[in-house]
Computed example of a mutant assay.
Amino acid sequence: MTSSGPWVGNWRPHKPRGPIAALYGSPGPKYGLPGLTGISKHDPTKFKAPMFSFGVRHYQSNSDCSPGPKYLIPSNITRQGLDGTPAFSLHSRIREQRQFQVPGPGQYIPEHSEKMIYRSAPAFTLSGRIKDFKQSQTPGPAAYNLPPVLGPNTVTTAAAPTPSLYGRSKIGGFDEDLKKTPGPAAYKVVDPYVYMQKAPQFSMTGRNFAPGETTRKPGPGEYRPELVTSTRFKAPSFTFGLRHSQFIAPLIVDVPE
């Protein structure tokens, strides 16, 4: 701790009382944190940029056999193109172009331009049969089978019920013993109202009276409908005064004789 030059100030170097971290070459705790580069053990608290890989070399690259430098490049070819004097080739003389012949007025047919201006009906032409038509064997009308429209196995139409008729069994039939055949009386007559329209039917029952009813009711002759004026117009009627009773005593007045 000595110096060849003069000391400046009151401070002089002395022995440290304790260890000083700056005097040691230890890397310190900075390597204890996870790294910020790469994908392995990256710090989860820091942003990670996208990473791309270069991939592996394809296997066919090793099998390609390049020809190598066996090609002979001409000396007049550089990286900028041909180098040297211009070279020309001899070609045949081109034919002279004919003068363009403009059509005259007689070449135009304006009467045939009606289809381009006005509406016209479609027109079709009949051309000859091509040669390939003989080789194509198209089926005729008899080769197609339409679906049946009769019977239970219909495709496009609704099938009606199709009962079948079977032969009469010989065992236990009526032809073995005629005594087992039913007679006419064995059949019941079907009511015609079953298969025809039925008319309304009414029944006549006796008159029912309330029990203990002894009140005499008026008959039809007791009513006088011609005197009823509540349902039709009636002419006005007037009276001459009060009608006296026939049992009142007559008025007796003394009249001189």
Rank of each mutant, 00 (worst) to 15 (best):
A158L: 15
K131D: 08
S136V: 13
S113V: 03
A121W: 02
I109V: 12
T125F: 03
F133L: 05
P105R: 08
Q137N: 10
A123I: 08
S89M: 02
G140F: 04
G172W: 04
A87H: 07
L146I: 05
A142P: 00
Q80G: 12
L126K: 08
L82R: 12
P152Y: 04
G151H: 02
T85L: 06
Y144I: 04
P105T: 01
L146M: 12
K131N: 09
F124T: 05
P161G: 13
E114D: 09
F124K: 03
R98Y: 01
T156V: 13
E114R: 09
M116Q: 08
G106F: 12
K134I: 00
H112A: 09
Q97I: 13
P147T: 09
S127D: 04
L150R: 14
Y118M: 07
D132H: 06
P86M: 08
P122K: 03
G167D: 09
A121T: 08
E176I: 00
F100D: 11
S127Q: 10
H91S: 01
P141W: 08
R119Q: 07
A142M: 01
A160T: 08
K134T: 05
R79V: 01
T154G: 12
T154Y: 06
S169K: 06
V149H: 11
A158E: 15
Y108A: 14
D132Q: 02
S136C: 11
F174E: 13
A158I: 14
R95K: 14
E96T: 12
A123T: 08
P141Y: 06
P148K: 09
